[in-house]
């Protein structure tokens, strides 16, 4: 007796054959116990695979995940408090600018103290940067506008920088998200 190709029997078992391909094999199966056994075996194999028991997670699985996924990490929360990161950035920028300004003013305008050598050291390192910053700051916000209040002037400059950063983020972030968030 001529038996169908084993691969065809598997395809039949998987339901991958169309009616014209399946018909002659089914005719053969009606009279061939061995081929019937093979098809039944292939079907049982797939069924057994699909019925593989899934592992049970430990009792602490869900609570541990739900603890980690707290309100603080909620995906909806990221857009609720954008001011937090801007405030943090503002403080950082202001602190940096104050250090640069104080370093630029050390030596001549400050009385000698324990910190004076430190300021002098910083001045020698970032003196040109401090001078550039001072001249640029004068052109953006003249000292007369803040009535000589240097800290206020630095604060206003920092806020301006933040506005520029915020605008850039709004423009660029959607494009960056589009690149990263593939399924």
């Amino acid at each position: 007796m001529m038996h169908p190709d084993r691969n065809m029997l598997r395809q039949l078992a998987d339901g991958n054959l169309d009616a014209t391909e399946a018909h002659p094999i089914e005719v053969h199966l009606a009279s061939c116990t061995q081929c019937r056994m093979i098809v039944a075996f292939e079907r049982d194999l797939v069924r057994a695979l699909r019925e593989t028991p899934l592992p049970q997670a430990s009792p602490d699985f869900d609570p541990a995940v739900l603890r980690a996924v707290s309100r603080r990490n909620h995906p909806a929360a990221t857009s609720r408090l954008p001011w937090v990161k801007y405030a943090a950035a503002g403080i950082l920028i202001s602190a940096t600018l104050i250090v640069i300004t104080l370093a630029g003013a050390s030596g001549e305008e400050q009385s000698r103290s324990m910190l004076t050598p430190v300021f002098e050291q910083i001045t020698s390192l970032i003196g040109p940067l401090a001078n550039t910053f001072a001249s640029q700051a004068d052109s953006i916000i003249p000292t007369s506008c803040t009535q000589g209040n240097e800290v206020l002037r630095i604060f206003l400059l920092a806020m301006g920088a933040l506005l520029v950063l915020g605008g850039l983020e709004r423009l660029l972030l959607p494009h960056l998200k589009g690149l990263n968030h593939r399924p």
Binding site: A64, A68, V69
Partner: peptide, 27 residues
């Protein structure tokens, strides 16, 4: 088990990026 938990936590944090082009299970 630790990797599975980690995956669920990462998925939660990235939920906003799930664009529903694929099934959630696939993602």
């Amino acid at each position: 088990e630790e990797a599975a938990q980690d995956a669920f936590i990462r998925a939660f944090r990235a939920l906003r990026g799930f664009e529903q082009r694929a099934r959630f299970s696939t993602w």
